[in-house]
Design a protein around this nucleic acid. Structure first.
Length: 435
RNA sequence: GGAGAGGUGGCAGAGUGGUCGAAUGCACCGCACUCGAAAUGCGGCAUGCUCGCAAGGGCAUCCAGGGUUCGAAUCCCUGCCUCUCCGCCA
């Protein structure tokens, strides 16, 4: 959601930002609508003012009439109000409709990219920021996880039989490994990185899905319940909306939250993409990081959050690279995004495993999430301001499982469990095929 | 699922048709008193929109949406949420 005041003051800047994202200029039409709305609102308010004044006068006139017996004055005023009521509802409706239209317009357009976001239309424009770790040298040809996994309990057939494509049934050591990964990540994020563990609802209302930007534009990416709720596509939705419609105190910020939840995505429009294996599922676990911060702190918090995500990959000794997304490849709500891409030797490619975004006040404005800054040097209490919101994966559990399988595979089809994970696998150090 | 009670400012809590954006207390901010502090006294203290160069006006908001009325925090309807009891259930 965009700030109409910003567009009024800086229409060229608004259009320039949209252009970087490949969107046509829109400031002129938005401002025309804004002008029209304000004109109608002014006329409506003037009519309401006359009605209010007359109504007050009626009360006074009636009080006087009790003494004098003269009802004429009140009757005349009542006639005037009755006339106003002929025109007022139309003005009120018009104002309401224009306000709704303006709101929809302001909510339609994606967030504007930060100044340091590189140009580009798609992932080809993303910029590699850094690389960590050395891809392991194999003395055999590493296989893809979809080939290693089935013998270890990654059962694609049963998942498909029960639920259809893009669902997987995990058994035995594979289920254990997934659980271990989730617990491990959650412990790191809470005990070492300072994020507060949360267990949020997995089903949310329209308002929540609107707040984080899934609705109205991306409804087809979500699953919907029969009673009209939505399955969360990421815990970002539940965690970020925890502050919707609130005015937080300055001291409460930054608010750092994390949760391990299943995520549900319809993957509409992803037909044919990653159909094999465990990379793209309708349901997957993810440890999500969300930070609610003061505007001036959000850039630092963004770096901090990305490091928190990186710390998991480092602890598991998984090589990765950090990408700064270009303007055209960012999500709808982001002003700046880092992707972490893990090395998958079986595929011979880096694949996204985390995405950390600073949304600025974009989501906060949609969900009306504010805070009250500390009084300034003059001692005057400032009014509430929108918070900044950030979200990132720390990490996607399913894809981390894929990365462990491919990076730690042995020639005989077994998989070594990373050292850091063994307290979570009950000491299990090797996944052995057929057990 | 059934029965009942209720949703008012940061918090507590008055207010049952007009002068109520809303008493009072607490919290918070400023000033006075004080060597300083406490206590006390005085003043201030909701949000959004809008008109205006400004000073300062206006409109809306007492859970949400409809309705009655010249006029609604107050009356009526619907929805949402909370609490109590019963039923069911992990």
């Amino acid at each position: 959601m965009h700030d109409i005041k910003f567009i009024r003051e800086n229409p060229e800047g608004f259009d320039a930002g949209l252009k970087r994202r490949g969107v046509e200029p829109a400031a002129a039409t938005i401002l025309a609508l804004d002008t029209e709305r304000r004109a109608v609102a002014t006329r409506m308010q003037e009519a309401q003012n006359r009605r209010n004044e007359a109504s007050k006068a009626i009360g006074a006139a009636k009080a006087r009439a009790k003494v004098t017996g003269a009802e004429d004055e009140a009757a005349a005023l009542m006639a005037e109000v009755a006339e106003l009521k002929q025109t007022l509802p139309a003005l009120e409706n018009e104002e309401k409709e224009l306000t709704a239209r303006l709101h929809d317009e302001l909510a339609r357009f994606p967030n504007l990219p930060d100044a340091d976001v590189p140009k580009g239309e798609d992932e080809a424009g993303n910029v590699e920021v850094s690389r960590w770790g050395t891809p392991r040298a194999f003395d055999f040809t590493p296989r893809e996880h979809a080939d290693i996994g089935p013998a270890l309990g990654l059962d694609f057939e049963t998942g498909a039989a029960i639920s259809g494509a893009r669902f997987t049934f995990l058994r035995g050591q594979m289920a254990r490994l997934q659980r271990a990964l989730g617990q491990f990540m959650l412990d790191r994020q809470t005990m070492e990185n300072g994020y507060v563990e949360c267990a949020p609802p997995l089903l949310v209302k329209d308002e929540a899905a609107f707040g984080t930007g899934q609705l109205p534009k991306f409804a087809e990416d979500l699953f919907r319940t029969t009673d009209g709720r939505w399955l969360i596509p990421t815990a970002e939705v539940s965690l970020t909306n925890a502050v919707s419609e609130q005015i937080l105190t300055d001291g409460a910020l930054p608010l750092r939250m994390t949760a391990l939840t299943p995520c549900f995505r319809s993957e509409a429009g992803a037909a044919g993409k990653d159909t094999r294996g465990y990379i793209r599922q309708h349901q997957f676990d993810k440890v999500e990081l969300v930070t609610i911060s003061r505007p001036e702190d959000s850039s630092d918090e963004h770096e901090r959050m990305t490091l928190a995500a990186e710390s998991i990959l480092q602890a598991l000794d998984l090589p990765y690279r950090k990408m700064l997304l270009c303007a055209g490849d960012m999500g709808f709500t982001a002003r700046k995004t880092y992707d972490l891409e893990v090395w998958l030797p079986g595929q011979g490619a880096y694949r996204e495993i985390s995405s950390c975004s600073n949304c600025g006040p974009f989501q906060a404005r949609r969900m009306n999430a504010r805070y009250r800054p500390e009084p300034g040097a003059d001692g005057r209490k400032p009014g509430p301001e929108f918070v900044h919101t950030l979200n990132g994966s720390g990490l996607a559990v399913g894809r981390t499982l894929v990365a462990v399988l491919e990076n730690y595979q042995q020639a005989d089809g077994s998989v070594i469990v990373p050292e850091a994970l063994r307290p979570y696998t009950g000491g299990l150090a090797v996944l052995v095929p057929g057990t």
